[in-house]
Design a protein around this nucleic acid. Structure first.
Lengths: 241, 241
DNA sequence: CCTCAATCCTGACCGAGATCAGTCACGGGT
DNA sequence: ACCCGTGACTGATCTCGGTCAGGATTGAGG
């Protein structure tokens, strides 16, 4: 997965000119890598840099005063990381690489320059931010409303759909480096309950999560069970010419 | 409250030139009004228009398959309304005016033109979108994690802080047209429990919500009780010259 | 003055899911 | 071969907050 993942993602929304594409490529040239487990953005820190994931998984999370953490979102290849912190000049969350992580770095002044030179890049990035927000809302709305097993099913489907957009998953399943603790923190459950719920879904013949792989045992029934609507993830094609 | 509310809000982030300001004013010239209770955006509808609230309150919400609704955010004067729908070309939520509502209308092509002519307007709007997202995340993270009374206290404080930014509230309190049902749908509680929690906060001498007015009985103790951090709402001043 | 419809308010009951307190399988280090 | 740390897994118990089933208060309209 190289920098074209971003271009492909944004290109699905705005029709980028060669010049736009060139500026975008220049923007994401600088590469960095982080090792699993060592946080790369810290809540409360003022940071003037954002990233785009090239390979690996990360999660952004908030620490609550009582010591619990809420994972707000997982980032997979092609996703922005810390864009909100960049705009707000203050990180309201921390980011932890789940696997070893390769990213390209985006500096704030470069981003502003890019906006000046390529306005439709700005539109594209605003679109990407909107899509991320829609996902976060969809994700967080589930918490406390849907019951635990439906939440889990929905999450596994959503992640699968996102991965398939960047060719890392199919209807059969996908490789998933998350631990049950990650799932617990993301879904607002205890790890104990995560375990129970996964067992339930497995015994129902819907989906199996084992040894780092998610296997959809019965995709259609799972979609129905999870009330999964994927409209907010997809984009039919460039909407802006 | 006239269109300068937006200019003031964006101006707190990017230093707008007179030309930028002029384009912004042109963008928000068209006025419309809606009566309380009649929805103005519907979930699933493709819409090419967004609004900025001039006066009144609205709420954006999602309907869940089981008939419950989750209020995602309330919009008060100066807030965007449906910006995400505009970018995604699909509304993932509905909007209901809580009081009679006066808004200025923003059309998609006009927005794109404005981006071309005034790139720093794009930066400002991306910032506003980021701020909104941060608020939504902060808001929704509380659901299912903080306990009900803390959630309520936090919400009342946050709303007060937002209103004070547009001169509609003080440390003493504010006028609030919400019913307990609105609070229930926003905080993910039953209306019964909302009532219990409001009584508890009142009896603790922290805050009183009665007859359409929120009165902070002991602001400092309430802030402590709610673990309220207002950093994500404020902006020290223009960060971009 | 008497409905009616909202909205607010209350107590009794109950269930989903957290907490607690463990066991089991494994892999790495010494 | 042993220890120890990590993650998966299980059942018993407790509690927050939802549901149900009402009652009180208000204002609008006939």
């Amino acid at each position: 997965m190289d920098s074209t993942a971003v271009a492909r993602k944004l290109g699905a929304f705005v029709a980028l000119s060669d010049a736009d594409r060139c500026i975008l490529t220049g923007l994401v040239k600088r590469r960095r890598s982080f090792e699993a487990g060592r946080d790369l953005v810290l809540q409360g820190q003022s940071d003037h840099v954002a990233y785009i994931v090239v390979s690996g998984w990360a999660c952004s999370y908030k620490l609550l005063p009582d010591g619990q953490r809420q994972i707000v979102d997982f980032q997979i290849p092609g996703d922005f990381l810390g864009l909100r912190s960049l705009m707000l000049h203050l990180s309201d969350h921390s980011v932890e690489p789940i696997t070893d992580l390769l990213v390209s770095e985006i500096r704030y002044p470069d981003l502003l320059d890019a906006f000046r030179q390529a306005p439709r890049l700005a539109t594209g990035i605003l679109w990407a931010a909107s899509r991320d927000e829609a996902m976060v809302v969809e994700h967080l709305v589930g918490i406390g409303r849907r019951e635990a097993s439906v939440r889990m099913a929905h999450f596994l489907l959503e992640t699968g759909a996102r991965l398939s957009l960047v060719s890392n998953g199919t209807r059969d399943g996908y490789a998933c480096p998350l631990t049950q603790y990650h799932l617990a923190d993301a879904l607002g459950l205890s790890s104990v309950h995560v375990n129970r719920v996964l067992r339930l879904l497995r015994e129902e013949g819907l989906v199996t999560f084992r040894d780092g792989f998610v296997t959809f045992d019965d995709y259609d029934r799972l979609v129905e069970y999870a009330e999964f609507e994927r409209a907010y993830l997809d984009q039919d094609g460039p909407l802006l010419t």
